[in-house]
Amino acid sequence: MTADGRGAAGDWRAEFEALAAGARRALEEVLPGPDVPPARIHEAMRYSALAGGKLLRPVLVMAAARCVGGPEAVTPAVRRAAAAVELVHTYSLIHDDLPAMDDDAMRRGQPANHVVFGEAMAILAGDALLTLAFEVLAGLPRWGADPAVALAVAEELARAAGTAGLIGGQVDDLDAVQGAPLDLARLQSIHRRKTGALFRACVRMGARLAGAGEGELEALTAYATAFGEAFQIVDDILDVTGDEAELGKPVGSDARRGKVTVPGLVGLERARRLAAEATERAVASLDPLGDRAALLAWLARSLLERRR
């Protein structure tokens, strides 16, 4: 199979599931046990972190490492870095669902964290997951990572999670809900930070841990940028057309909150074209990496078939 992403989809699905299983094991390893005091906060952390998400972000960390260094590059340090990314992603979902933010009662097919544990505990659970992520990254040298690389990886994730990334995008997203004027370019800027920044961190973290050169990092960064764009457009489309049971959360919530989305701005058909164009850019960005990037190419193409 070549890096155009075409081939036996079942083979790449199996590869995805194998990497996702490794991420789940790593999450189990880094999360405090449910009986470790104070047990209630650890129960809340585990409730959301182990809720059965797709684990796409940690898989991207490991797939990027494998692209650069082969299967043996998916080391214990890479798996723990992948778990750290999922901890950050889960914290963001818990906080997004709060009444002060998106006010969603369901996540991943189960009641949202604040519905089960209360708002105060949900805030603390999110805070604890974010803190734990950087504790995990600080310990990567004990798992074989070069200390300088571990530091660079922690910086990648911190930047993606902060005001230049996820949080900054969320701030502008909240402003837009409250009536700030928004066109497609500004909306895409929000998406590049709120959604895309973490995808870029994923591939750059995995690549750095596997010893990537500047050319490889450049190609993978371009891939992740386009990947994040396609992912968010499809996410917006699914909020209009998706099946609630498959999504694991209510559909139509964006419209009910008055949230600006790509389909809302340009219509469903153009939104689908924009998603397809971003996917093609993602795949084309992998050309310098050749067949090594076939799994990443498949992951990009699979976005257009997402149902959840």
Rank of each mutant, 00 (worst) to 15 (best):
T225D: 09
G252N: 14
I41S: 11
Q110D: 07
L184Q: 14
I123V: 10
V251S: 12
E72F: 03
D243Q: 06
D102I: 08
G5L: 10
A65T: 06
G248N: 13
V260S: 09
A224E: 08
A73V: 01
A128K: 02
L130W: 08
E246S: 15
R80Q: 09
A105D: 12
A21F: 02
P32V: 11
A125E: 03
L296E: 06
R142M: 11
D97A: 05
P71F: 09
L303E: 01
G248K: 06
A122H: 08
D4F: 12
L93D: 06
A83S: 13
A207G: 14
A201R: 05
P111E: 00
D102F: 09
A120M: 08
P58F: 14
R192H: 10
L247K: 11
V85M: 15
A9S: 13
M1I: 12
R6K: 15
T221F: 07
G179M: 13
R270A: 13
L184C: 05
L137Y: 10
A39V: 15
L93G: 04
V78R: 13
R25W: 00
P141L: 07
E86R: 04
L140T: 03
G53H: 10
A82C: 15
L198D: 11
F16C: 01
E86G: 02
G211W: 10
A8L: 15
R292G: 01
A176K: 04
V74W: 01
G228E: 04
E155H: 12
D103N: 03
A293P: 03
G139E: 05
A105G: 11
L268R: 01
G126T: 06
R57H: 11
E244R: 15
R308P: 00
L217N: 07
A293Q: 02
G267S: 15
E72Y: 03
G7F: 12
A138Q: 02
A245G: 12
D35P: 08
L198G: 05
V171D: 09
H89L: 14
V266P: 03
R272G: 14
R13M: 13
R256N: 11
I41R: 15
A197Y: 04
L220S: 12
P250N: 05
L157E: 12
L304E: 02
E119V: 05
L19N: 01
P58D: 04
V260P: 10
F16V: 00
R186C: 07
I237W: 00
L93T: 06
R79F: 04
G290K: 10
L187V: 13
R208H: 15
L247E: 06
A64S: 14
K249Y: 15
A63E: 04
R200Q: 13
G165C: 10
I94Q: 06
